[in-house]
Design a protein around this nucleic acid. Structure first.
Lengths: 249, 249
DNA sequence: CGTTCGATTGAGTTATCTCAATAGGCGTGG
DNA sequence: CCACGCCTATTGAGATAACTCAATCGAACG
């Protein structure tokens, strides 16, 4: 094993964990994944990591911190399209798309592992099953997108916020970053507004309602779930769209 | 060439057309695609083709007509997640997901080509480049989802409707089903409401406004574009997210 | 030719937004 | 150590985009 493989092995830990929830990943595949990381770098909060339309030649794997994909409208309105937790291969799709149609930005200080597209090509060609697992994880992003469309289209502001906080709870649990009671979510209410298509003021009122109803507290970057059952019902949250079971075969 | 390959060759025509807009597809790959179709069947309008949560063993390729993916909320509200035009490999993702988390339903009479998952596995393993193109087309769906999230989150009702009609115009053009002036869109205003997260009544008013402003007419299942430039601006539509250029290499 | 389904319009309601003001935390510089 | 400024959270009050309910109308269809 080459030494730089060792150096970056921890970079893929949470990704591996996430993949293993859904499928069997061999040790060889795990090593191939770790070996494909060329570099790990840190960035400050509020930085744009990938800009829409610019050709990219490597994929970003989030190791630590929180990033989002977003688009802006001409009048300055922002919409967050997805929130990413450690272990997410944020722009895996840039491998085939070559450029992204949206931006990727850090919401906190982050550590990012880079995987060059050449390494992606090599690893997917040498490991067809791993390639399918990576394909799968882009399909998971699409499934999350669809649930968000449902939220934005048909859920009330309260349910929308409850839903996104449920989703993140589960996704954080998968990568071992949540306890039974809650998780760390270093977002501002304005960020949450951009993610839910609401205004910060309204987000504030809905959070107050969730607090007053004793469902959940979101304060100082921490989510504490008080009543998971009622929260789930309020959000009409069902984790089926996160495909948390092992695929057949 | 086997005769059943010949029988179903037309089934993949529009898909091939769509793929060739984005990448080079060899004749051999085209034949492999056509050969993977096991059967072509017709369905009436309003049928559920794939139900959420049920294990599936084949992919649906839309040959003719219009289908949508949708989810329902407990109170009966429906959200359409994506509209599909001929040539769309509607549930290509079922190949890896094994079950879908949403439903697929026909909006019109449709012709569907079936591709068994075994055939998918064979063709993707034997043709890695074709596999990447299919992966790519699932990424395209995700990009469309993201644009919808932006629409639902931040665009006004008028812009949202204008935008979806712009998108379908371009997508219909790609598969040769639109003229310079417009295209056939066999949806009711209620369908359009379910796709945009609005009420039918409000959709009606916004369509009237688009008509009154002389941007576009949607009547009797036909979209006629009167002023593309102003329509584009109203929707803030830019086709970048549809990746209409050839990928590099 | 009655029935059904989709489109259209009016009138009143409401969820969410906008504007605005206040308050709390936190880092920086004097 | 205090004062200032900045960012985020909070709350109030009024505005508005979109919704609900309800009625009418037209076309398709058996």
């Amino acid at each position: 094993m080459k030494s730089d493989t060792l150096i970056h092995a921890d970079a893929t830990d949470r990704l591996v964990r996430k993949l293993r929830v859904r499928d069997l990943l061999s040790d060889e595949e795990e090593r191939a994944l770790a070996a494909s990381v060329s570099e790990v770098r840190t960035f400050g909060p509020g930085e744009t990591l990938v800009r829409a339309g610019v050709a990219v030649s490597e994929c970003n794997l989030l190791v630590e911190g929180m990033v989002c994909r977003y688009k802006d409208l001409a009048d300055g309105q922002r919409q967050i399209l997805e929130l990413h937790v450690p272990g997410d291969f944020v722009d895996l799709h840039s491998f085939l798309l070559k450029r992204l149609e949206h931006n990727i930005g850090s919401l906190t200080p982050v550590r990012i592992a880079f995987v060059p597209h050449e390494a992606m090509k090599r690893v997917t060609e040498e490991h067809p099953h791993l390639a399918r697992m990576l394909w799968f994880s882009t399909l998971l992003d699409a499934a999350i997108h669809r649930e968000w469309i449902l939220s934005m289209g048909r859920r009330t502001a309260l349910a929308r916020i409850a839903h996104i906080l449920c989703e993140l709870f589960v996704r954080m649990q998968v990568v071992g970053l949540a306890t039974e009671r809650g998780y760390s979510l270093p977002l501002t209410q304005a960020d949450l507004a951009d993610a839910t298509g609401l205004t910060p003021v309204h987000v504030n009122r809905m959070l107050k309602k969730l607090r007053d109803d004793d469902l959940l507290t979101f304060r100082g970057g921490d989510v504490v779930v008080h009543d998971w059952e009622r929260l789930r019902r309020t959000a009409e949250f069902s984790p089926a769209y996160l495909f948390l079971e092992r695929r057949p075969r």
